[in-house]
Write a protein that binds this DNA or RNA. Structure first.
Lengths: 355, 355
DNA sequence: CCGGCATATGTGAGCGGTCACCTCACTGTG
DNA sequence: CACAGTGAGGTGACCGCTCACATATGCCGG
């Protein structure tokens, strides 16, 4: 016997499931004015007599009128929406930056769409264009990784875009890009480790978005060169604790590794685990420093020394940039916070016994 | 002196910064047919002669034509978009569920907007409506917490909605809701702990979305009652490691606490930290079990025993529900995975000395 | 050879707004 | 008192598309 369990799911195929739409002309009729006057009222105050405006407003909320965005857009009015292009939203940096963008954008009256980039599938320019809801849709790209960077490159030149990127190498920075100065932050973190007496500081890097341009690694290099110490080859990890763990198992087989600067806190977590398994005491025999200051990092065992990065502020700033690109009169966002080294338990002078 | 640094930011106020739009009529002219025929071609195949279709298609991609969504919508065509309502996107469950929704929705041709609910600000029905891009816009609500649950309640009845919720109490479940059976999962986890010989299992709960209905806590209760052991009062935590830590400091002052079931992995992390500071060895003197199986949990010290929850699958399922609500012909999504207890290092028989 | 009925295509209107332009008072001035 | 100037409001067209209908064309059997 066949049981139809679809009962109760009846509906029209039309989009609005019974939404009776009140139009500008209904309001006009109710208020005893022409539709144009209503249009004037709903778009910032133009020259409408106060009494008339009152009547129109009254009619508007009596009838529960809401302007139809599609009609507005079609009629050529600028529409406030944007699309965020990002990879995996469950990574701390991406998620937090997204939150910043969304918050700033919504309070500026923008609708925020999101399109998640698959790290494994490379999409072409045409597919990318298809992800934008309309031609000319403004875009924010979270380009901390290769998928984001590639999307940024592929974006047609005619779309207004702002992006969060790794710090660009030279002074020829694209004015539509924002970044955290994690190069400098990495330098400081490395100096800090060297200052603790470590002869060498190793680097477990994130996959770089542009291959030539891993800023955290560069900053680490800067500090090593500055101190005139040997530069061990950086190890490339992934984004997850697992990849940090796997990379660290290898790295820690060498007794000269006493300090590791990790590309992010998740990687650092993996390193801590590997150290524990290898019997290396942290921080006595091994110092571990991360990046991001995720909410978890202060509670790890040991609590993680890390560089706090203001992804949320960066997201806000990035939106601000885009907003000003679209409308020069848009307010300038407050700048985001500087990266800050948070020293906790996972780092200290080398007191180990093995080496 | 005043320097105008706005130079180079010139633009029209119109939305499309120089987007020349090709219309259906341009295509029609190029293909030597009427605009209606073009319309037929771009909307699934109707009765158009093959030869004609070829010509139209050729014209379409020669001219780079893309249909204007606003015009389509205005003309009454169902438009495929939805808005996800969620609180803090940087929490693992929310972020992962969002990813699931986005993935499923995009592959079904939907545009996904996102609107983040502030956990502290309670918004009213009107504000909520304003967050929907258009009247009748379908909505997915991630209602794992109070903010989401409240939004779900406030949603006007005329908007098509599907939601991820805590498991509803009775059989009178709203067919538009999906959930993970974390009540059963909590029961199993608690049975597991009891099976290890713990006389009592304590519960550090998440803030419940509906106050009367914390499913993980209920499941824990079920197991305790079933085993006929005393039910200690559940402790309410927040969502973060910090809140887990603070709650645990109090909880661990009592020596009879040998096993704690935590509302999520972040809470559990805080508990592990508190245990360490209190000198309680895990798992010998204290067993800790979490929920979620975040990517970090396997790498904590000790690795966390936890219940793996398929948030991504839940997101996909939830979208599928909405999709079928809008279009009965939509394919049924594969169900998400069952919760699964992952036993790691943080739990074991009580071998402690203090108690 | 004609009606009848498919199949393939074209035509008109209108979705709900906005824009450009026009009209209509009502003022104050020489 | 005629005049321009100004503020308040109305009218027409149109944005790009889809709908419902009207119109060719082909093929069938009677």
């Amino acid at each position: 016997m066949f049981v139809n369990d679809d009962e109760g799911l009846m509906h029209t195929t039309s989009d609005a499931v019974g939404v009776t739409s009140v139009t500008i002309r209904d309001v006009a009729r109710a208020a005893g004015v022409s539709y144009q006057t209503v249009s004037r009222v709903i778009n910032g105050n133009e020259r409408v007599a106060d009494a008339t405006r009152q009547r129109v407003m009254a009619a508007i909320d009596e009838l529960g009128y809401r302007p139809n965005q599609a009609a507005r857009e079609l009629a050529g009015k600028a529409v406030r929406s944007l699309t965020v292009l990002t990879s995996d939203t469950s990574l701390y940096g991406n998620a937090t930056a997204l939150r910043g963008v969304e918050e700033a954008a919504r309070s500026a009256g923008f609708t925020v769409s999101i399109s998640v980039l698959d790290r494994n599938a490379t999409l072409d320019s045409e597919q990318l264009r298809a992800r934008l809801t309309r031609p000319g849709e403004p875009v924010v790209v979270i380009a901390f990784d290769a998928a984001g960077a590639r999307a940024l490159e592929l974006l047609p030149p005619d779309v207004p875009v702002a992006a969060m990127v790794e710090r660009p190498p030279g002074v020829d920075a694209d004015p539509r890009h924002v970044w955290l100065d994690d190069r400098l932050a990495a330098t400081r973190a490395t100096r800090y480790l060297l200052g603790l007496g470590h002869r060498a500081v190793h680097c477990l890097a994130l996959p770089s978005s542009t291959a030539r341009n891993a800023q955290r690694t560069e900053g680490w290099l800067d500090a090593l060169r500055e101190a005139g110490v040997d530069v061990p080859p950086p190890v490339e990890g992934g984004w997850t604790p697992r990849s940090g763990y796997l990379a660290a198992r290898e790295l820690l087989s060498r007794p000269d590794v006493t300090a590791v600067l990790c590309g992010n806190d998740d990687l650092a977590l993996g390193v801590l685990r590997a150290a524990r398994e290898a019997g290396r005491r942290v921080p006595d025999e091994l110092s571990v420093v991360g990046f991001d200051d995720t909410p978890a990092s202060a509670y790890l065992a040991p609590a993680l020394t890390t560089v706090r990065l203001d992804f949320e502020g960066l997201g806000r700033t990035c939106f601000g940039l885009l907003h000003r690109l679209l409308d020069a009169a848009a307010p300038v966002q407050e700048p985001c916070a500087e990266p800050e080294l948070i020293v906790r338990e996972s780092s200290g002078p080398h007191r180990g016994g093995i080496g």
